[in-house]
């Protein structure tokens, strides 16, 4: 991942900023210029939203074969999370033991290091999720 490519998406990755179609009310993460439900009617009607960051696990896996940048974290939990406002996203679950993770688990976002560009390169930060104690 190169710097400009990461940097231009930092609002979404740092702050969970997405948007909402004011024509139909649907929330989107990441931001979309056009609402897939309203098409033309949504142009100019997409409103920026910062998500609360709470949601639940829809499905999950424990990754053993990872890409080079994520090898040191193995084994780690990846999940699809449904945010309270509706949209789904993919992220790691941290501060959670491997036998604790389950479908339906309530989670909230946390700001963490994602990876780094080699030993001397920049560090990439963004959201991960951790369990919410009931």
């Amino acid at each position: 991942m190169n710097m400009p490519r990461f940097w231009r998406e930092k609002q979404g990755r740092y702050n969970l900023v997405g948007n909402r179609c004011t024509n139909c009310g649907t929330y989107y993460f990441p931001k979309r210029d056009i609402c897939p439900k309203c098409h033309r009617k949504s142009i100019g009607k997409m409103e920026e939203v910062r998500f609360k960051g709470t949601g639940k696990v829809v499905s999950w896996t424990i990754v053993h074969d990872a890409h080079p940048d994520y090898k040191d974290m193995r084994p780690y939990i990846m999940a699809i999370i449904e945010l309270e406002e509706g949209p789904r996203l993919t992220g790691q679950i941290v501060d959670c033991s491997l036998d604790e993770i389950h479908t339906g688990m309530r989670v909230r976002d946390t700001f963490r290091k994602l990876s780094e560009d080699g030993k001397d390169g920049v560090i990439f930060y963004g959201y991960k999720f951790r369990p919410v104690k009931e």
Binding site: S59, V63, M78, T90, Q92
Partner: peptide
């Protein structure tokens, strides 16, 4: 690449999440 792999997802990890959902 911007919203899956950058967070640590792999091709196989997505297949795995489909499998888990199908099993459950």
């Amino acid at each position: 690449q911007e919203w899956e792999t950058v967070f640590g997802a792999t091709y196989a990890s997505l297949q795995a999440m489909m499998a888990r959902a199908h099993m459950e």
